[in-house]
């Protein structure tokens, strides 16, 4: 498999009022092309910090991150963070606009994504008239419009109710696969992680270190909802749960 990113001995400490806090310690892993990689761990263990570092939002860390090619990274946050005063189309174009990459071609591409993923009739509407799932799709398209090679997702469905969440994760998974993305997702939902991922990294409690990396091999791999029915599902759930449980 082609390696896109090599992360070596990544550590992060930050100062707080109670002294130095070790958030991440000696984390080493690779990101392969076209894979869906999920990082799980208990809350507050520094999962999001790894994404922030990968996207260079956080530049104070030790260790090395090597990109094998010039890679454009997209980042999808926990909340959709749509701007209420912009229309759906303007929201979708926001990233391009700020990156100063908005031209006829990228605009056309973004609109085609909106059309393709069920937002055709909502382009001139404001976010308040969208359902939670639709908002999440707009947020995803806003990121995809910038044509990232790697998509980082920080618990992208956590703001949704369970029913919507299943549907949206199916939607998003389909879009990601169709657009041929490499994904690094952070989550604390085991079932969701197993249902979408090719590999799962389990982090320990703070300071976060890598406990295990699992390759998820499900028979008849298809959509996330279908994957939950695979016979290996319970097996992975069990070992992941035990991995996490020991840390609590």
């Amino acid at each position: 498999m082609d390696t896109l990113v090599q992360i070596k001995n990544l550590s992060k400490t930050y100062e707080s009022i109670d002294g130095k806090v070790n958030a991440i310690k000696d984390v080493t892993f690779d990101i392969y092309k076209n894979e869906f990689l999920t990082i799980i761990g208990s809350s507050g263990c520094g999962k999001s910090t790894i994404l922030n570092i990968l996207d260079q939002l956080d530049k104070e860390y030790q260790g090395t991150i090597e990109f094998t090619e010039d890679i454009n990274i997209g980042y999808m946050l926990q909340e959709d963070a749509l701007f209420e005063w912009l229309t759906v189309e303007e929201n979708a174009l926001l990233g391009l606009k700020i990156l100063k990459k908005l031209n006829d071609e990228t605009r056309k591409y973004t609109i085609s994504l909106l059309d393709k993923y069920g937002l055709k009739d909502f382009k001139d509407k404001y976010p308040k008239s969208l359902s939670g799932g639709m908002r999440q799709r707009v947020a995803l398209i806003r990121t995809l419009a910038t044509k990232p090679k790697i998509l980082l997702m920080d618990e992208p469905f956590s703001a949704l109710d369970y029913q919507t969440r299943l549907q949206v994760s199916d939607d998003v998974y389909r879009i990601i696969k169709q657009e041929g993305m490499t994904v690094v997702m952070v989550s604390h939902d085991l079932a969701e992680s197993i249902s979408v991922s090719d590999r799962i990294i389990v982090l320990s409690k703070r300071p976060a270190t890598i406990k295990n990396i699992y390759k998820i091999e499900l028979s008849n791999k298809s959509t996330p909802i279908e994957n939950r029915k695979a016979k290996e599902f319970a097996y992975y759930y069990d070992i992941l749960w035990k991995d996490l449980d020991k840390n609590v």
Binding site: L57, L77, F83, L94, G95
Partner: peptide, 18 residues
């Protein structure tokens, strides 16, 4: 102003002015 929205802007490498 929502911290998430500011973070979103940062993910698009927005300047302070943006």
């Amino acid at each position: 102003t929502s911290a998430t929205k500011i973070k979103l802007m940062r993910t698009f490498k927005a300047s302070d002015k943006d």
